[in-house]
Design a protein around this nucleic acid. Structure first.
Length: 592
RNA sequence: CGGGGUGUGGCGCAGUUGGAAGCGCGCCGCGUUUGGGACGCGGAGGUCGACGGUUCAAGUCCGUCCACCCCGACCA
């Protein structure tokens, strides 16, 4: 490709609304342009990188017997009503009506289409196991797109779906994906860790997220260096410090005027926050037979700990949660700021499993301006549910080995999910098994967003000059710079550069040829910015020495290559780069 | 949806008490330059986010709305 005709201008300065480096550099280097919040155009450079990423995904999916297909982006609402997600999913789903007034959906994922196909196409166990995938546009109207390509509303995703006779088959396909995903990220040179993640409402029994660890990420993981335990904070467990005190002390009411927060209360009473009980009121959306129903949930955690909403949702079996309004709290008989379950009736109380193990806490007296001292679970009140509902934090003890865990941030670049039979049962996607019984197909779903992967790689590999793209996903393998300056020698340089360009292309090398009439500084800076791993320079200075100059983007040395060996030598360098990536792929252990 | 911020040429920005819309980069033309974002001369490019109001006069003051960014809520 000749740069003189490439649709991509580099920018000396990043747009002011780009804050993180991958966003700034992808914009500055001309890879992407923004159209609206969370909606981006992939310019030719990004498109080439994305195509390479997608081809890596294809390769790895094909290796584990995936069949590529293409499912529609626009769906009739019926298939979403069939699984109940038409109602379940909120405004995140794009909905519109066609000209005949029929409800339509913009695809945010493709389980519905998969089960619709499976229902019609899979009749026999002889057709299973099977794995299908596609690389397709998704629309999720995220309330807060951010950080360039890290979190967008429209994106392309490789999503695959495993279909099996039984759970053993699912386990196998899940394990296949577990490894294939490490291969995909490894081939893109993106370091990731797999962490256990929330399975949510889908009846699945296992899910993992692939996290690229970076401070710009918005998920928090707890990882244990000692034993390797790692989990998303949403579900991370930890060992809690139990109290050793006697519980016998008598309950006592004290005046605590204007002390509505735990911090204020602890200061006022001169006690640590761990000696208080924090009351959190949530409205839980419960799925009842005749539809949804909201119920007030009174959650109690120790004052120094944080409620984990995901754990709470799972513990009470709710569809979702929202903070309760003050009026809803008052209607229950509790006083906001001074609430406790002591003396309250007809309210769903759920306490963290540490609470029964704690002694003599300060809790609200359900009276404006008063708290109780020495409140004890069991004696003063009981709960409907006792469960782990607090969030693990940095330094908390590992649930497996007890060592202090680290809280780290990351970007979720992929996930794998054992769905089970939830979807197939919902729509009657069944097959006849060898024993003659009609059984629901057992499913798994697996996803990787290609744009987010590109952005993560850009975030990981850059310096003050620009991007440093791995050879496997760089838009081109070689950035050829011609320096046609000088007096009288320009023609020779140009001839040599054009010939080298043509020879390289002929030899199958992907070359971005900077043939523009620009100064050397501009060309070198643009080359650094775009971040193609190998840069070749043809200029009169080195040409006189009978060669061209080669520089690897992430190294400082340059080397002179005799011009008649250039094609061969370049191919060798490139091969080495590819080989280095392949060598570093890891086989991971996966224990189902 | 709550809190904060920003909207002036493609990008980055300035614009004073309301009084003729500017600068740098980029872009076009000519010339000189040519190994790390060259220089000279001459140009093009703007409904100042939108609408309404105040005023003799609005980029500037007032109101409403919109868009984008950041934090939070949210994230099959």
């Amino acid at each position: 490709m000749r740069m003189s005709s490439l649709l991509s201008q580099t920018l000396r300065e990043a747009p002011s609304d780009a804050e993180i480096s991958s966003h700034q550099l992808l914009i500055r280097a001309g890879y992407i342009r923004q159209l609206a919040a969370g909606i981006f155009t992939s310019m030719p450079l990004a498109k080439r990188s994305l195509t390479k990423i997608e081809n890596i995904m294809r390769d790895e999916m094909n290796k584990i017997s995936g069949q590529e297909m293409s499912m529609p982006v626009v769906h009739p609402a019926e298939i979403w009503k069939a699984t109940g997600r038409w109602e379940k999913v909120g405004p995140e789903m794009g909905r519109f009506q066609d000209r005949n007034g029929r409800d339509m959906v913009l695809a945010m994922t493709h389980e519905e289409v998969v089960v619709a196909i499976v229902r019609d196409e899979i009749q026999s166990y002889r057709q299973l196991p099977m794995m299908i995938y596609h690389i397709q546009t998704k629309w999720r109207d995220d309330p807060r797109p951010r950080a360039g390509l890290i979190r967008v509303r429209e994106f392309t995703m490789k999503d695959s779906y495993s279909l099996d006779r039984d759970l053993e088959g699912l386990d196998q396909q899940y394990a296949n994906h577990y490894q294939a995903y490490f291969n995909i990220f490894g081939r893109c040179k993106l370091p990731v860790i797999a962490v256990e993640s929330d399975v949510g409402m889908m009846g699945g029994n296992m899910a993992h997220e692939y996290m690229y660890l970076t401070p710009v990420g918005e998920d928090t993981m707890l990882i244990c260096d000692a034993c390797g335990y790692s989990a998303n904070r949403q579900i991370a467990e930890f060992q809690k410090q139990k109290a050793v005190e006697e519980k016998a002390i008598k309950r006592k009411k004290v005046a605590t005027p204007e002390m509505k927060t735990i911090t204020g209360l602890a200061e006022f009473l001169e006690i640590p926050e761990s000696k208080t009980a924090k009351a959190v009121f949530m409205m839980a959306v419960m799925q009842e037979e005749e539809g949804e129903n909201e119920q007030l949930v009174f959650a109690i955690v120790r004052g120094d700990m944080e409620l984990n909403e995901t754990k709470l949702v799972n513990a009470v079996g709710a569809k979702g949660l929202r903070p309760a309004e003050e009026s809803e709290i008052i209607a229950s008989g509790a006083i906001p700021g001074y609430a406790s379950p002591v003396g309250l009736k007809d309210i769903l109380v759920i306490v963290d499993d540490l609470i029964p193990e704690s002694a003599n806490l300060v809790a609200g007296a359900n009276e404006e301006g008063y708290h109780f001292l020495n409140v004890n679970y069991g004696r003063d009140y009981t709960a409907d549910i006792v469960a782990d509902i607090t969030a693990a934090g940095d330094g908390d003890a590992c649930p497996k080995c007890g060592a202090a865990m680290q809280a780290v941030r990351g970007v979720e670049v992929g996930n794998i999910f054992k769905l089970g039979t939830w979807y197939s049962e919902a729509v009657g996607a069944t097959f006849q098994d060898a024993d003659g019984d009609e059984k629901p197909v057992v499913m798994g779903s697996y996803g990787i967003g290609s744009g987010r992967l590109l952005a993560s790689v850009a975030e990981e590999y850059n310096d003050k000059y620009g991007l440093i793209m791995p050879i496997t996903i760089a838009p081109y393998e070689v950035h050829l710079v011609e320096l046609v300056g000088g007096k009288g020698e320009g023609e020779d340089v140009q001839k040599a550069a054009v010939k080298l360009y043509q020879d390289l292309v002929q030899a199958g090398v992907e070359v971005l040829f900077d043939d523009r009439d620009e100064s050397p500084g501009v060309k070198f800076n643009d080359a650094d910015l775009i971040g193609i791993p190998l840069r070749l320079t043809v200029g009169s200075r080195v040409l006189k020495e009978g060669g061209i100059e080669a520089k690897i983007r992430y190294e400082t040395e340059k080397q002179l290559i005799p011009i008649d060996e250039a094609v061969q030598k370049v191919k060798e360098i490139i091969q080495e780069m590819y080989a280095e990536v392949e060598q570093n792929l890891e086989t991971v252990e996966f224990n189902v």
